[in-house]
Amino acid sequence: MTRLTDKTVFITGGSRGIGRAIALACAKEGAKVVIAAKSDTPHPKLPGTIHTVADEIRELGGEVLPLVLDVRDDAMVKACIDQAANHFGGLDMLVNNAGAIRLQGVEKLKASRYDLMHQVNARAVFSCSQAALPWLKESSQAHILSLSPPLNLNPKWFAQYGPYTTTKYAMTMMTIGMAEEFRRYGISVNSLWPKTLISTAAIEFEAGGPALMAQGRKPDIMADAAVSILARTDQSLSGQALIDEDLLRSDGVTEFDHYRYAEGNKPLLPDLFLD
């Protein structure tokens, strides 16, 4: 039996990048997967939609439900989560993967962009978790997993892009709070962050450009770490801000070269917020 057989996983921002990788990894482990994202039609620059990922999962023999979702819309969030749970007969896991990034400081950043980052990052964790809670209470293996970093108060992580930093740290603080609040319901709540740069469209177009891609890893490492967390059947791991490589090493993984985005010996870049 695979590790997530008959479990239902709801993934926001699941149409590309890390979200897509987590969706495929969960499907390979037997999960029923809900791909919830805005990308209903192809983007001129970014490959992948909820439908293309759904097709990939079907090719693996998995069960999948693609849903159009804007995580800023509370009514849409609740409707999508309820639809998914009713479709599959319950909901076991919520992965808060949807994200918005702009690495600018207060002086140059448009207020509208800050609002977007706050809504898609911090606020969506609140909205999606609240909507999923009634269903997660009924699960015997309930998890909420948010893609956010450990809290590192070194001023260098605030100096150039404090607005983005604060929205990502807010996600982690929600993890800490919900882990305690939902402990009585048997729900595990954790955050997950990459030890190195992950080479995705967000890096290519928003945070460094194509030149950095060769110094990162594939999203698969985050997907494998996510599955490791979601597959745990008790609450022994909750309230933690976990790092992908460190978690996998604790699982006994020792070989990481296959996760490199590009061949060669270029040094891998540490991700943001890690000293």
Rank of each mutant, 00 (worst) to 15 (best):
A79D: 13
G90I: 10
A75V: 13
C80K: 12
R58F: 02
F88P: 04
L67M: 14
I57S: 06
H87E: 11
G62D: 05
D73M: 09
A85S: 15
E56H: 01
D73Y: 00
C80Y: 07
R72V: 00
V68P: 04
K78F: 04
A79K: 13
M76K: 15
A85K: 09
V77I: 14
V71R: 09
V68S: 04
G62L: 01
I81L: 15
V71H: 10
A75K: 12
A84F: 02
A85P: 14
L60M: 08
L60A: 07
G90V: 06
A79W: 00
A79S: 15
P66K: 06
A84D: 08
C80W: 09
F88Q: 05
K78S: 15
L65V: 08
R72D: 03
D74W: 06
G89F: 11
D82V: 07
L65H: 06
Q83W: 02
I57F: 04
I57M: 05
I57E: 00
V77Y: 05
I57K: 07
V77H: 02
C80V: 02
G89M: 11
A85T: 09
L65E: 09
Q83C: 11
V68E: 00
G89E: 11
A79N: 11
C80E: 12
L60T: 03
E59K: 08
A79G: 03
D73L: 10
E59A: 12
R72N: 11
R72Y: 00
F88T: 06
L67S: 11
A75Q: 13
D70K: 12
E59L: 03
I57H: 02
L65N: 09
V71C: 10
